[in-house]
Simulated assay, not measured.
Amino acid sequence: MVNATDRDTATEYEQVRASIAARFTNPLDLPKEIFSDTSVYREELDRIFYGPYWHPVAHRAELGEVNSFKTTWLGEVPILVSRGADDRIRAFVNTCTHRGTLLEQRAVGVAEEFQCPYHRWLFNSGGEFCGAPGEREFRSDFDRKDYALPELRVSEIAGLIFVTRHPDTPLLEAFLGECADPVRDCLLDDGELTLLGYQKVVYKTNWKTYFDNDFYHAPLLHTGFRILGWQGGKGDVRITQPTGHFSVGYQSTPYVDNGYLADPSVVQFRGTDDRARVVALRPVTVLTKHVDTINIRFARPRGVDRTEVSYAFFGHVSDTDEYRAHRVRQASNLLGPSGFITIEDAAVFNRQQMTATDGTLARFVKGVDGCPEDATQNDEIGNTVGWANYRKVMGFDH
């Protein structure tokens, strides 16, 4: 049954959709309403976050032993990722199947069972209902199997765990396309990573503004890039059609001490492969391998003008204690939300959101006249494939 609120929301979006579509005639010119309209945001949740997309939610390194778990979110749906007693990784909607209470609120942990605080219903790490007080007096049609935790589809590549709520989402390799191998590269190919730690930040910006952080800006906005002498070039650019995932691989330039850093060792490269890589997976996940830092940015919308990003940093199982300590020190200092080469992002995201209701367009201009396959590292064309697909998915091209 469709209630009145659902009908009102659908009607509101249809009115907004028609207005935006009239101005969204070119994927190079974005009507700013898409960054500020609440009905657009609600529709994005349904069509994208709960639609036929795969969403990274964890890495195996975060689930280091049997019965370990992580809680996270898919859009506005709470998710519980669990490595069960049988060593299988599953993902569930993090809700008690009795009265809908949030089941587990710890960020990470180890638990053989999950107990709802409201009525003490119990579930095992495989999501099965195990029991509850007063079960003998439950309704006549009660069947334990009907009260298991709602399970999502799960797939994995190089230890990175993806989930989807939609039955028609394609196989993960097909969804990633040209960016499957770059994902493996970021995760050191074998995925045998170790968790170093987290940082979390909430940006005052729409989730699309956060994700649409192009490569054109990096040497211009970020003082750290200039100070450290890390300038971009052509790079190895890969774009997945039609979804718009994109990746840039490039040679990392060793820092030559020029007096700016009190301790240059913080950006020293100590590994064996100095190729750097950034992978942006739509709708809203970024993977980065730069110098000795391996970073996954798990992001989620917190409303039309808020985006939460959990920065997870990793090492490799083969690391010595000394190398691990170096990675820990370099990780957040380099690529965290206040890192040497990322600190200015928050201010720009905020300033973009401050203009999201001014009725003008956000426009792409640099290097966009050619083919996406010919993109260079500092062009904007890598972003435009995803925007063309967004326009289609959201119904703005009809």
Rank of each mutant, 00 (worst) to 15 (best):
G197H: 10
V201N: 01
A299E: 06
S252C: 06
F211C: 00
L287H: 03
V286W: 05
V278F: 13
G259P: 10
Y203F: 15
G339C: 13
Y210T: 01
F225G: 06
S310D: 01
R302T: 05
L334N: 07
R324H: 11
H316A: 15
A218I: 15
I227R: 03
Y216G: 04
P264W: 08
T285P: 00
P219I: 02
G224K: 06
T253S: 07
H245N: 06
R277F: 14
V284A: 06
G336P: 11
K200I: 02
S338K: 12
L261M: 08
R302C: 12
T223V: 11
H245K: 08
H316G: 01
K208H: 02
Y203V: 00
S310Q: 11
Y198V: 03
T272C: 01
V317N: 03
D319W: 02
V291E: 01
T272A: 02
D263L: 05
D305N: 05
D305T: 01
T240D: 00
Y216F: 15
L228I: 15
K204Y: 04
F211R: 00
S332G: 11
G224N: 09
H290Q: 12
Q241N: 12
Q268M: 13
N213A: 15
H222Y: 09
R282G: 03
G235N: 06
K289T: 09
D214Y: 10
G249C: 08
K208A: 07
F314I: 07
G235F: 14
Q199T: 08
N206C: 05
V237D: 03
T240P: 02
Q199K: 11
R282L: 12
F314W: 02
E308Y: 09
F246T: 02
V278M: 06
